[in-house]
Amino acid sequence: MHKPEMPMDPIEEVESMLKRLAPAAMSEVASRANEAMIDDLASGQIADTKDTIRRIYWWPTGIAASLIAGVGLFFLDQHQANAGAVGEYEFLESQEFTKPAPNGVSVEKSNLYKLNKSGLVVQVGERNLINTLDSQF
């Protein structure tokens, strides 16, 4: 006689569903920054744990400063940025790039958002400065 299939235990059902989820990977910027840091640590170029990696919040300040031709970016003043961001916005794209800095490497990432109420485009970014201190040896 054919036995009916037992319903799955709810906990087992959740666990089998959890197996269908995987942790999201690190961003390319973070992966590169970590690899650069490991290389510098291994070669002894980073000697100090404090202030080795400095994070700067890059926020447009001052009255609309410039229009970048072809891209349509505006640097808004703080009040305009605050007012626009409280309402709805549309995420446009992410930009990220790495460039040499006087004391190490600068890793920049910014997101472009369009504020639906005003139609203005806001660029919000951050800049990570990885300082490579002079080795004493």
Partner: peptide, 10 residues
């Protein structure tokens, strides 16, 4: 990602 980087450094 900053937290992970800080932890890796430590």
């Amino acid at each position: 990602e900053d937290l992970v980087q800080e932890a890796v450094l430590k």
